[in-house]
Design a protein around this nucleic acid. Sequence first.
DNA 1: GAGTTTGAAACT
DNA 2: CAGTTTCAAACTC
Length: 433
Amino acid sequence: MESSLTVNGTTDSSDAGACHAGAMNSSLTNLDSRENPHVYTEDHCSPGAPPHVSVPAGAPYPYQHTIQPEMVDPLTLRFHCPCQSAQCQLSYPDYLLDPQSSQYQLLHGPVPAASSSHGSLPAPWFTNEPVLCSMMPGDIHNICVPQAMDQQQFQEGLAEYTQPVVCNVSGDGQMVLVNPSEPVYLTLSSAPTHREEDVSVVWTTRQPPHYHQAAYTLSGQTSNMQPQAPPAQTAGALCELRSRKPCHCTRSQCLKLYCECFANGLMCSNCDCSNCHNNAEHDTKRQKAIKSCLGRNPEAFRSKIAAGPSGEVKGWHNKGCHCKRSGCLKNYCECYEANIMCTSSCKCVGCRNYYFDDSEMGPKESSVSVEDRGSLSVITPAVVEAVCSCMLVQAEGAESGALSPPQAERMVLVEFGHCLSQIVKAMFRNNSD
DNA sequence: GAGTTTGAAACT
DNA sequence: CAGTTTCAAACTC
């Protein structure tokens, strides 16, 4: 998962030095789950990518801070320490880490829902990575509960988890901590997000007196997360989701990725589909279909749109589009539809959906000659930021190593050379396509 | 609303 | 992995 937060505790001071090629080639990402899952640093190699660790957890370290709720950036859902130090290393608070005293734990590794006896829980929808603030709004379906499950099913299902789940939810800054060892019946309410047709999810409970769940809202004007009283119940609906457009499938039984509901990890509800099997009544078949899709592509249910450089939703298409006739200027194009520009990952023909310095222009307004596209599609804002980050890492490394200014300058320039080399290679690849 | 176009997903 | 078919959404009239 190209998630934003990661976690590990490997001592690896070479990470920073290893920044250049990896960051440029993989274009931001690479979750780096290693031994100690509890500490992470901001990643300066690849904006939007998971931070990784260069100092072991528990080691005395002046820049190590504990995550506080107010550190969550309401827009990016990432943690930002107020110390602003490039070397800052954040660790999860004790209440999330201590399995003895805490009702919460971080969830690591695949959720064992696949072994669920009744098979009702959506194992493939759960991320394989730690989920606390590591998910983008578009990933909300990763923690969705099948909407047709009744209370008993839901409780039975959750009871099978041995670890509580810490869920980060919605682009509105909602975060929910759920303890499945004392499961409660969750309901969901929705709120409008950046796209009118999208709906983000807010988990709430029916307020059992002892429920171990906390919902926090980051209101627009305040940076402090305050416990939020559960909103009014949305009786019945366990899962309201983004992209709640009804599908019109006729032949796929809504059990293939052609079906947008299925592709979003949703059961069909109020759709115009025929012969639909994407519902609780056909759960066995549905689970089989999910497995089948994951067999073909383990990332099948992940959002195709990666986060942008600062973690915002707008970023780039993971696989890239393959448009041939639309010029990537119609909604047939997945990039255009997501209001993002095509990148070097795309294999489109005659693309006109790319960035040109028309400043405020988005992908749907900008224009530039097709000939320039090869280079422009390589030097995306993400790449520029990645280059800057890599150079910054070198500068910081030089600083911490007490190198002389000329030596530091040299390190930075060498790094820049590495990055430039990668960019040029990418341009040639692009132009030769 | 019917028919056409389009490109992703699925299949071979 | 490339080519073909299937599919459903987007688009046009």
